[in-house]
Simulated assay, not measured.
Amino acid sequence: MVFPWIEDYFGRGNLDWKIACDKEMNEVDENEDEEANVVNLDADEDGVVFVEEDGQLRPKKQVKGKGKQRGAVQSKNDSAKKGFLRLLIRCRRLILQDAAVYLYLKRENNWVNTKIPIFSSDAFKAFQEDVVIAVANPSIDRLQEFEGLVPNLVDNSREVAGQISDVNNKLVHLQREQQQSIHSIENYRQQSIQDTAVLVGMHQQLAKDMRLLIVAAAMLKLKLAVADGYSKFCSEQ
Results as ranks from 00 to 15, higher is better:
8 D>I: 06
106 K>W: 08
96 L>R: 02
209 D>S: 13
114 T>D: 10
121 S>E: 00
101 V>G: 01
59 P>V: 07
42 D>W: 13
53 E>D: 13
78 D>M: 08
162 G>W: 09
223 K>Y: 07
136 A>G: 03
179 Q>Y: 08
92 R>W: 02
14 N>Q: 04
141 D>L: 01
124 F>A: 02
217 A>D: 14
15 L>G: 02
83 G>T: 05
56 Q>K: 15
59 P>N: 03
99 A>N: 00
81 K>D: 10
127 F>N: 00
188 Y>K: 07
237 Q>R: 13
166 D>G: 04
213 L>A: 10
102 Y>E: 05
202 M>C: 09
37 N>W: 09
87 L>T: 06
130 D>E: 10
81 K>W: 12
4 P>A: 00
136 A>N: 09
147 E>S: 03
73 V>N: 05
131 V>P: 02
9 Y>G: 03
204 Q>C: 05
225 A>Y: 12
83 G>Y: 12
35 E>W: 01
68 K>A: 07
130 D>C: 03
88 L>R: 10
57 L>A: 01
233 F>P: 03
121 S>Q: 00
36 A>C: 05
138 P>T: 00
231 S>L: 12
80 A>Q: 10
158 R>Y: 12
54 D>L: 00
236 E>F: 12
122 D>F: 06
196 T>V: 06
11 G>D: 12
17 W>M: 03
79 S>G: 01
142 R>H: 09
228 D>W: 06
90 R>S: 10
26 N>M: 13
232 K>F: 09
205 Q>H: 11
103 L>A: 05
152 N>D: 15
167 V>M: 12
145 E>Y: 02
213 L>T: 11
109 N>D: 11
202 M>V: 14
143 L>M: 05
176 R>S: 14
222 L>V: 12
16 D>C: 03
175 Q>M: 00
227 A>I: 14
174 L>W: 05
93 R>A: 06
211 R>N: 15
